[in-house]
Amino acid sequence: MSVPGRNPHLGGGPNLVNIEVMRNHSELFRAECMRLISEADKSCKRLQNNDNKQLDQRVRDIQFLKKELELKLEEIILDIDVLIALQSRVEKALEACKDPLRVTVLCLEERMKRLPSERLHDEVDRELLKEREAIEGVASLLQRVIEQTTEQIRLNRSAKYQLEKDLKEKYEAQCIDNFCASMTTHSIENLQHHCQCVCLDGLTVTPKQWENISDINIAKAEQQKNNSLSLRALVEALLEQTSADMQKQFQATTAAFQQNVQEIKSAKSQMEDQLAKILLEFASQQRISGDLQVAVTENEHALGLAQARLALRRQRPAKEQCHDPAQSRLLAEVQQLAFQISKLREAVAQSEKEQRALVRCQLELQKNIEIKANSLYIDEVICAQHREPIIIHNF
């Protein structure tokens, strides 16, 4: 009995039907594999393309933030430079306070060397004390400004450090992402020999957190920039005001010195005029005293003559002892001459008294003139020499 559809010539050979089925199945599987390969290739290219797009977008995001960071870094660096220059101005202004303060203290000390009668708390002393107080106040204020500026520079440098650190990390991330975007399947063969996969799951941040980090650094830098602007405006106004205050007070003190010098010169001139008059009067008094002495001598001689005549007339004979007009005249002359001599001697004594008073006035005037000359020398020469080189410029 024969099997239907079986070629009798094949005898006990292979089952062609099964082989055909297997061949068809293989062809179908091969077609499926080709389709799978095609789809996998398309999917791989699509995924790589999406990766490249995401990497490019990421690079653009990094570049955008880098520009923002670089702009803010330039601004903060400029602010630091401006603050350093401003701090240098303040330090120079503080240094410029030393000489005026030293001169003011020297002038106060020199004026304490005046003679006790002149050691008064006058307008010059009051202005010098105001000047010392003003300069010390300005110096104290400038010292505090230096401290504030130093602190602001420190804060700016801290913000600068954070920006530079952020920029460095952004640069490294950009380089890595650029390299990732340029990588191909062939470029990873050498890379695999040098790189190991590092798990950073515990250190990853979300895109929002990543963006916030730079925003925070930029915001801090902006805040310090605004603080710097406020401080700079304050310091500029302060430098202008303090220099104006010092100049105004220095001028007021100088005016007080000039006024005091004029008053001393005027008083000294008046005393010198009085001294000249006293000396003239003393010389006149000496002359009148001499004239009085001569008059006393002449009157004494005349009195002696009259008394001699009277004595001689007493030697007349008894009957000739007549109280005649000549006798009466001689007696009256003696009486009058004695009275005149008494008056002249009183005048001589009074003249000597006047001379002693004039000498006392002379000595007092000379002493006061010396005192005024000493005060004038201190104010017009010593203090003026100390103050002359001092020029208070705008800070």
Rank of each mutant, 00 (worst) to 15 (best):
E380V: 00
L101P: 05
Q249N: 05
I62R: 00
E95T: 11
L234W: 08
D177A: 04
L16S: 05
V235Y: 05
L47P: 05
I84A: 10
E91P: 03
M22D: 10
S2E: 03
M271P: 01
S38A: 10
E95S: 09
L279Q: 14
V124E: 15
F250D: 11
D324V: 01
S88V: 07
G202K: 15
Q249K: 06
K165R: 07
V145G: 05
L142N: 02
A357N: 09
P207F: 10
C195D: 01
L234Q: 12
Q174A: 08
A326V: 14
Q143Y: 12
L106V: 02
E123L: 07
V334P: 15
M112C: 08
I153K: 09
V21E: 11
L16C: 03
I213T: 14
L10M: 03
L363H: 09
S375D: 02
S266A: 07
L155C: 01
Q293P: 00
S266G: 04
D41N: 12
I371Q: 05
T242I: 06
A40E: 15
E281H: 11
Q54M: 14
D324C: 12
P14E: 01
K72T: 11
K367W: 08
E127W: 01
R287N: 08
S26R: 14
T254W: 12
I153G: 03
L376K: 02
I76T: 10
L94M: 04
L129H: 11
K268S: 02
H25M: 06
E169Y: 10
S342L: 12
C383N: 06
K265T: 08
A347H: 07
A349Q: 13
H323V: 10
V21M: 07
V294K: 08
Q315E: 15
E136S: 09
R35P: 10
C97I: 01
V90I: 06
L191N: 04
I288F: 02
K66N: 07
Q196G: 03
A93E: 05
Q262M: 09
R387E: 04
E32P: 00
D201F: 08
I382A: 03
C322L: 15
V105I: 10
Q152V: 05
S289G: 07
L10W: 11
H323E: 14
A276N: 13
L238P: 00
D79A: 13
R313E: 13
V138D: 00
G11I: 08
H121K: 15
R46W: 12
L55Q: 01
L344I: 00
V90T: 07
S351Q: 03
I341N: 07
H194V: 12
Q258P: 01
M1R: 10
L155E: 05
S342Y: 06
R30P: 02
N52E: 04
Q336V: 02
K343F: 04
